[in-house]
Design a binder for these strands. Structure first.
Lengths: 350, 350
DNA sequence: CGCACAATTGAGAGTTATCAATTGCGGTGG
DNA sequence: CCACCGCAATTGATAACTCTCAATTGTGCG
């Protein structure tokens, strides 16, 4: 049920409006002068305000002007309903931000249509702009294609292998969108050991956590092969997120997914054997980087990288790989790893 | 620079409008008939549309009606600028959702004021409703007090020690807000070992990750002491987040912070000695649960819990605690732990 | 061919987990 | 008031696992 606040000094006119609106099933509140009207608006937050222009204590224009200074009231439409038919008055009302200006005499249907139109407009606007209103509806089909074309016109940087993209502790100025290549995000502990906490390839965003948290980067990112990355300026990112609820939802979901994935990894790191962790890393890499067009999936990654992903040392990792090799779970050719028996790897993790 | 699309068939009138608006530094686009106008609007997404009513191929009302069916166009204000001065026409235009209706003849200043007023209105609205527009401004002072009063009227459940609150794999129906007590979130690995991945006390939210991701819970939560928790139904949560950008920002920040914290914990779990992990856990617990009103901070927590927090076994944890005890870093009285030398703990972590 | 660097292997040390045994403590019933 | 039960905390001995440091082998490339 929508609510309407009526501000009208003349009791006869007021009663007529009340009657019409109540018949149409609106929740109706009334105020008899400008001051009362403003106060009730602030208190009750109606869905719409109908106000006369000529009012004791504070006129309709004054009410509107005051309301426009309150951020939480801006979205409430105000319709002037008055005997002032001078063009000058009408223009002034509209320029102050009125949603409509109806001159007397008006018919019941004119009033109802105007009220309904404004409420509907707000409702449509809300559904469109409000974050998460569509959280369950939003689909991300063909996301990559759409985003690629969107960001191709932006600044595109090329990074060589081992080049840093951003560094822990710095302030974020851009959102990064990977067009091609592979990038790792890692953290270093006090002994100088790296743990890879994220991997990105074509179609992934990077750096949004720091932007959304409004804080410094908490990880460092580096290209692990030659990569092309589109840079979206911070302001544009916020603009994008602000105006497109589907994009906001996208990032919220990414954050939530990251969270779950990290929690699962924490359990692994805490309690699982190296064997399990390596198995899990291999499966993760296959899942992340497998190109579906080839039938074979061959991993060309140096041992230190792989160790950092598994949270161990190069030597321990190599021993585990040798084990897998003797067990015919993987084959190693010139350092390149091919998964021969995926099911055995999966079985290890139960 | 704001952009305006002008739809007007009469070239003389059109040129006059273009001149006025260009002088006022607007980016101006023009269309000479209704079809062209609609197409340009869809393509260019101007900040405002000025349209005549009587147009070839598709009249102004038709354009507006079509635009109102497109979610992305709803927020663009359309002003009718026409010689039709019939009340009926004016009402029809406004009822369709026009932002303003200006009748000829009009002055330059009337036009400019109307345009400016509408653009300003959209801008203000955007700043208010749009998510993250205020990301840098939003403060959360007295958050707990405000939220407590907000949620006190909701369903409040009491949980006894060791009672489950929600379980991994189930579907989220509520957002949980902790009024009092302490709760842990944990995950179990295949061998049945638990790792505590989150701790909550009064003023914390739980369960939002699953809600925002629109997926099942990925952790299990259990009260570690008697607790009171307000349940906010799923729909209300979405309503809240949709209508209050500051609340949306709050949850986004929570997600982002969790992410960073988990990444840091992962590095610890992967490479740091048990000693360091236990030191870090003790400091974390002090930070999380310290009541500022007492001068002493005493931890009453069973050894299994503490082990799950540190990612180790009960026995190993106890040995580490004994070491800390002999080194006079902590004291243990009837199982309760008091931190004697916080600086030594911090020094361990470098 | 030889250099530079990555990958692998080896041996031993260090850390943590496991399993079993013991101690400590609060509560209960005689 | 005291013995005893049940459970948590602690200690002990040993095994398992992973790391460290050093040495060796393999590979790509000029």
């Amino acid at each position: 049920m929508y609510s309407v606040l009526i501000i009208e000094a003349d009791s006869e006119k007021r009663e007529r409006i009340v009657t019409i609106l109540e018949l149409a099933s609106y929740q109706v509140w009334v105020a008899c002068d400008g001051k009362e009207g403003y106060e009730k608006a602030m208190e009750l937050h109606p869905d719409l305000i109908l106000s006369d222009v000529n009012l004791p204590t504070l006129d309709g224009f004054g009410i509107l002007k005051l309301l426009m200074t309150r951020p939480e009231m801006i979205s409430i439409p105000l319709i002037f309903l008055t005997g002032n038919v001078e063009r000058e008055d009408i223009r002034r009302g509209m320029e102050l931000g009125a949603a409509d200006y109806i001159t007397e005499p008006y018919t019941e249907s004119e009033l109802l249509n105007a009220v309904e139109a404004q409420i509907e407009k707000v409702e449509r606007l809300k559904n469109h702009t409000s974050l998460l209103a569509n959280v369950n509806r939003t689909q991300f089909n063909n996301r990559k294609e759409k985003l690629d074309t969107l960001f191709k016109h932006k600044i595109v940087n090329k990074y060589k292998k081992n080049q840093y993209i951003f560094t822990e502790g710095n302030h974020p100025l851009y959102l990064f969108y990977v067009l091609s290549g592979k990038i790792k995000a890692f953290k270093t502990n006090e002994d100088g050991k790296d743990l890879t906490v994220g991997l990105y390839n074509a179609g992934d965003f990077m750096g949004y956590t720091a932007l959304l948290e409004d804080d410094k980067y908490s990880v460092t990112t580096m290209a692990i092969e030659a990569s092309e990355i589109a840079l979206i300026p911070r302001e544009e990112f916020f603009e994008l997120v602000s105006n497109h609820s589907s994009i906001a939802i996208l990032f919220i979901r990414l954050l939530a997914k990251n969270n779950n994935h990290k929690a699962a990894q924490m359990v692994q790191l805490a309690y699982d054997s190296l064997r399990k962790r390596v198995a899990s890393t291999l499966l993760f890499l296959k899942d992340k980087f497998d190109k579906q067009d080839k039938d074979k999936f061959i991993l060309d990654i140096n041992r230190t990288e792989l160790a950092n992903l598994s949270g161990t040392t190069k030597e321990s990792l190599i021993r585990t790989l040798s084990d897998f090799h003797t067990e015919k779970i993987i084959s190693i050719d010139h350092g390149k790893i091919e998964i021969l028996d995926e099911s055995k790897l999966k079985y290890m993790l139960n």
